[in-house]
Each structure stands twice: as C-alpha cells, then as structure tokens.
C-alpha cells in the first residue's frame, strides 16, 4: 500500500487570515493525506524545524499579508539549511501576478489563488510530491 503523503500547512507572516489554511488542511486530510497545521505567526525557522520534525514531503505556505517576497525565500533557505531540498513547496493566498514568476523561480511548485478548487489543490500536491520523488 502506498504511504500517506505527509503535509505541513504553515502560516508564515503575521496575518491571522487562517480560513484558507484550515480549509485546505481539512481538504487534504479528506483526500487521505497526513496533515499537520502549524497555527499562526510561524517564522521561517519554525516552519523548517516543523517540516524536519514531522518528516513531511510537502509544505504548504498560506499568507495574505503581502510579506511573501521576503518570508518565502527565508523559509526556503531554512529548509535548505536542514537538508530538506526534497520537500515540495506550494503556496496559497493573494499574490500579485507580477510576483508569480519570481515565486516559481525560487522553487514554489504550485500557487493557489482565490477560486482554486479542492481537486486542483489535491492533484497539484500529489504531482509535486511525485516530481520530487523522481
């Protein structure tokens, strides 16, 4: 039997908009994944540490404060520092269109904006994990 995909849904930045993060966490759990939800105000260090401790294959970053261009690279660096290059990174929230290429460039595998469906999120995550495994 296939092992369950382990996911960390994390909220970097200071904003308290966790409706999306909690919804996605539940949707992924319903889809059979093992989901850890970090709670609010996670620093890049805390997220990377949790990813390491929980041995996840995917980290989903949810942010709506607009701090993504500073917080995401810092998180990626922290993951690298812990040798977690194989963890797939995805992101949800509100990202200005002109930021998207840069986010992809820095290694965010999938980006979910307003109106993303459950199916789309589940499928993208599976795909991102499969890609990292190869």
């Amino acid at each position: 039997m296939e092992d369950k995909i382990r996911v960390l849904i994390a909220k970097p930045g200071l904003d308290g908009h966790d409706r999306g993060a909690k919804l996605v966490a539940r949707i992924l759990r319903d889809a059979g994944m093992e989901v850890i939800y970090s709670g609010l105000r996670q620093t890049p260090e805390m997220i990377a540490e949790a990813a390491l401790q929980e041995d996840v294959q995917v980290v989903g970053l949810s942010i709506l404060s607009g701090a993504h261009m500073e917080v995401f690279p810092a998180t990626i660096q922290q993951l690298k520092d812990r040798g977690l290059e194989n963890v797939a990174l995805v992101a949800g929230g509100i990202f200005p269109e002109e930021d998207v290429p840069a986010l992809k460039q820095m290694g965010i595998k999938a980006i979910f904006g307003p109106g993303s469906s459950s199916q789309e999120i589940v499928d993208s995550l599976k795909k991102a994990v499969a890609e990292k495994a190869n």
Binding site: L14, H68, V71
Partner: peptide
C-alpha cells in the same frame, strides 16, 4: 501587523510586514 502585534519596525518579526496591511 507589527503595530497590531506589538513589534517595532526594526524587530525581526516585522520582516516583510511593515506598512503592508
């Protein structure tokens, strides 16, 4: 958000958040 959560603009937690929301 730093103003709302009690961090000065030069605090580490304020990174990327200054003047945003």
């Amino acid at each position: 958000l730093p103003t709302q959560i009690g961090y000065d603009s030069d605090h580490e937690m304020a990174r990327g958040e200054i003047g945003k929301v």
